[in-house]
Simulated assay, not measured.
Amino acid sequence: MSDSSPSPAAIPPILPEYPEFSCAAVVVAGGQSSRLGHVPKASLSDGTNTLLGCALQAVRQASPRVVVGPDTLPVPSDVLLTREDPPFSGPAAAIHAGLERVAAQCEGSGTPTPKWCLILGVDTPRIAPAVQRLMRTAAANDATARPLSHEGDSPASEGFWGVSGGIYQPLVGIYRYESIRSVFSEGTTDASVRSFLRRLNPVSVELSAQHTADVDTWEQAERLGYTTSLWSSY
């Protein structure tokens, strides 16, 4: 009887046109949601999908996928869940925790660490097209073997971050995994995410304001249609 289990070669690539591209994802989902009266953002639903579900769907091609938030978050079995230490110590600390969880998963499974890592907040329900653009931008850069750099004499860049209408989106970006892990390795508690990302000299990628629209207030939640909380607390 033959072994019917799929071989590694049978696993489809993340992006068919870039078969060597590898990418993890860290979804930041454990903030205090103070402008929403502490209602968990991840729980907000449009009647079909939650914000957490939208984020995970947007990064569905990444592996591993890590959500950083409370251990009560309902994540699928193929998604890893971890927590920043201490809890509620900010998105920079959450990114650090997520990146370390990626490393632990790869080490434990004996698989190579990914070349790239998506960083995404949980509050952008229409972000999927922007994620696709970021992944293809990173993959194309690898395929053409072009060094990432700014104009002039700026240091080489180690990733791409989203910009929409002149506003930088620190929680919408893709970065070389080893580089971003090194940058976020220490001092992240209650720190600014941008202060760490700037060390990577990211290249700006213009994204649609429609795709990057986020939920920080109830007014924004109503505008995007995510007004029902499926759980009241973490």
Results as ranks from 00 to 15, higher is better:
Asp3Asn: 14
Pro6Asn: 04
Pro6Ser: 08
Pro6Thr: 03
Ser7Ala: 02
Ser7Cys: 00
Pro8His: 10
Ile14Ser: 12
Pro16Arg: 05
Pro16Val: 01
Glu17Gly: 00
Tyr18Lys: 05
Tyr18Ala: 05
Pro19Val: 02
Pro19Trp: 07
Glu20Val: 04
Phe21Thr: 13
Ser22Thr: 15
Ser22His: 06
Cys23Arg: 04
Ala25Ile: 04
Val28Trp: 00
Val28Met: 05
Ser34Asn: 04
Leu36Gly: 08
Gly37Ile: 12
His38Gln: 11
Pro40Gly: 10
Lys41Met: 09
Lys41Cys: 10
Ala42Ser: 14
Ser45Lys: 04
Asp46Pro: 01
Gly47Ala: 08
Thr48Asn: 12
Asn49Arg: 14
Leu51Cys: 14
Leu52Ala: 08
Ala55Arg: 00
Ala55Val: 03
Gln57Leu: 15
Ala58Cys: 07
Ala58Asp: 00
Ala58Glu: 00
Gln61Met: 04
Ala62Asp: 12
Ala62Glu: 08
Pro64Ser: 06
Val67Asn: 00
Pro70Arg: 12
Leu73Gln: 13
Val75Asn: 13
Val75His: 14
Ser77Glu: 15
Leu80Asp: 02
Leu80Trp: 10
Leu81Glu: 00
Thr82Trp: 04
Arg83Pro: 01
Ser89Ile: 03
Pro91Val: 05
Ala92Tyr: 06
Ala93Leu: 06
Ala94Phe: 03
Ile95Trp: 09
Ala97Trp: 10
Ala97Arg: 08
Gly98Met: 05
Leu99Ser: 01
Arg101Cys: 08
Val102Arg: 01
Ala103Val: 01
Gln105Val: 14
Gly110Met: 10
Thr111Tyr: 12
Thr111Arg: 15
Cys117Gln: 00
Leu118Trp: 07
Gly121Lys: 11
Asp123Glu: 05
Asp123Gln: 05
Thr124Glu: 10
Arg126Gln: 12
Ile127Arg: 03
Pro129His: 06
Ala130Thr: 15
Ala130Asn: 03
Ala130Ile: 03
Val131Gln: 08
Thr137Gln: 14
Thr137Glu: 14
Ala138Glu: 03
Ala139Trp: 02
Ala140Cys: 01
Asn141Gln: 14
Asn141Thr: 14
Asp142Cys: 03
Thr144Leu: 00
Thr144Arg: 11
Ala145Gly: 01
Ala145Leu: 09
Ala145Thr: 00
Pro147Ile: 11
Glu151Gly: 09
Asp153Phe: 10
Pro155Arg: 13
Glu158Asn: 11
Trp161Phe: 07
Val163Thr: 05
Gly165Asp: 06
Ile167Ser: 08
Ile167Leu: 08
Gln169Asp: 04
Gln169Gly: 03
Leu171Asp: 08
Gly173Ile: 02
Gly173Ala: 01
Ile174Val: 15
Tyr175Thr: 07
Arg176Val: 02
Tyr177His: 09
Tyr177Lys: 02
Glu178Pro: 02
Ser179Val: 08
Arg181Gly: 00
Val183Met: 07
Thr188Asp: 09
Thr188Met: 03
Ala191Asp: 06
Ala191Glu: 06
Val193Gln: 06
Arg194Ala: 09
Arg194Phe: 07
Ser195Cys: 01
Phe196Tyr: 15
Leu197Pro: 07
Arg199Tyr: 04
Asn201Cys: 14
Asn201Glu: 14
Val203Pro: 00
Ser204Lys: 15
Glu206Val: 15
Ser208Trp: 12
Gln210Val: 15
Thr212Pro: 03
Ala213Met: 05
Glu219Gln: 13
Gln220Trp: 02
Gln220Phe: 04
Gln220Ile: 11
Gln220Ser: 15
Ala221Trp: 02
Gly225Arg: 02
Tyr226Cys: 05
Thr228Gly: 00
Ser229Asp: 07
Leu230Pro: 01
Ser232Met: 13
Ser232Gly: 01
